[in-house]
């Protein structure tokens, strides 16, 4: 269950910070500022932010930045990172070529 649902909770304006230009998602090259801004644009859930910015959706599949993104979003929302629901986990959990995906052993498709 999503625990953060009150979309009116953040109405203040986005304030730039000195380290906004720092990369957080190394694969998709998404900065801290972009993630922070997304929260002000109404993205409160990790799943929403993933879809909005593609953080954690690159080649490494979020193995490096997931916790970092969670921490940044939680700080902006003023909650503990543990209160944020993780993005949905679904297969393939590791990068895999489409050709390989379509090559199922004993498969019919």
């Amino acid at each position: 269950m999503t625990q953060i649902t009150d979309r009116s909770m953040r109405t203040a304006a986005f304030k730039p910070e000195a380290d906004d230009d720092m990369l957080i998602c190394r694969c998709e090259e998404i900065t801290k500022g972009e993630i922070r801004r997304a929260v002000y644009e109404g993205m409160y859930e990790i799943t929403e932010i993933r879809r909005w910015l593609r953080v954690g959706m690159g080649l490494c599949q979020g193995q490096t930045c997931t916790k970092l993104v969670q921490r940044i979003v939680a700080k902006e929302l003023g909650v503990s990172p543990a209160q944020l629901e993780s993005a949905a986990a679904r297969g393939p959990v590791r990068p895999i070529e489409m050709a390989c995906m379509g090559n199922e052993k004993g498969g019919v498709c």
Binding site: L23, E29, G58, L59, C60, Q63, T64, P95
Partner: peptide, 18 residues
């Protein structure tokens, strides 16, 4: 791709893909 920044070895075990 975006920032044309250099990358090298980071995790060394095939996870990070850098």
């Amino acid at each position: 791709k975006k920032r044309h920044e250099p990358r090298g070895i980071f995790c060394a075990i095939g996870r990070c893909t850098d």
